[in-house]
Amino acid sequence: MTPLLELKGISRFFGGLAALTDVSFEVRKDEILGLIGPNGAGKTTLFNVVNGFYAPSRGEVFFKGERISGLKPHQVCARGLARTFQVVKPLQRMSVLDNVIASAFLRAKSKAQAVQIAGEVLHLTGLYDDREVISKGLPLGKRKRLEIARALATKPELILLDESFAGLNPTEQNESIDIIRKIKEIGITIMIIEHNMKVIMSISDRIIVLNYGQKIAEGSPEETRNNPLVIEAYLGEA
């Protein structure tokens, strides 16, 4: 079976800096794949390469067997791969509902259908009661969820979540964990970047660890936790 997403030998250079070096892995259908690593490890760069904001300097990305490296972000999204941003990018002067409608139009044939999709997604992410709020005025926790809602409205098969938990209080974190479980239940595969170890260990099926742009470990949460290379990357040499 072809994996849903496959990275083959991805490298990305910025001038002389290697942000990613020869990274290869795959995302299997219906799993939650956690992506962790210290600051500056190249996690967001990796998302930007997969999503089409950056072309890889070397290597190729395949989605459902089709080569997507070199496509533009909107083409990648149209193929069923959506993402959220670590630094949230709400469409500020639009209401929450309009934000989601704008992205629902990707699959909707009519405005009525777009409104319907948006309504479903807002219920799923628990933002329905805030639908009339101008998104500039949302607190950070809800803006993070709006990012997820917008990505979901494009009806993706794979969703890339970039630090959807950062800056949330424990209550909000629990709500977001529930939302991510619900997303998995409706058959969407998830790749998530997260610094919060409690969250990532509890929701991920598999974890990939990046350090200095290289993949240093891959495996179940249990294996990752006990991997000496990972401990060294986070805590330094003993």
């Binding site: 999503n51 904001f53 533009k72 972000p73 909107h74 083409q75 999204c77 149209a78 959506a82 993402r83 941003f85 990018k89 709400p90 469409l91 500020q92 002067r93 639009m94 309009d98 409608i101 704008a102 992205s103 139009f105 990707l106 405005k111 777009a114 917008r150 990505a151 494009t154």
Partner: peptide, 24 residues
Amino acid sequence: GSRLGYYFVAIREDQDAAESLGIN
């Protein structure tokens, strides 16, 4: 009021976000 209008405003508010939401 149509798809075009939503896309126009989305582009105005954040071109990168719009692009990643599948808007050419």
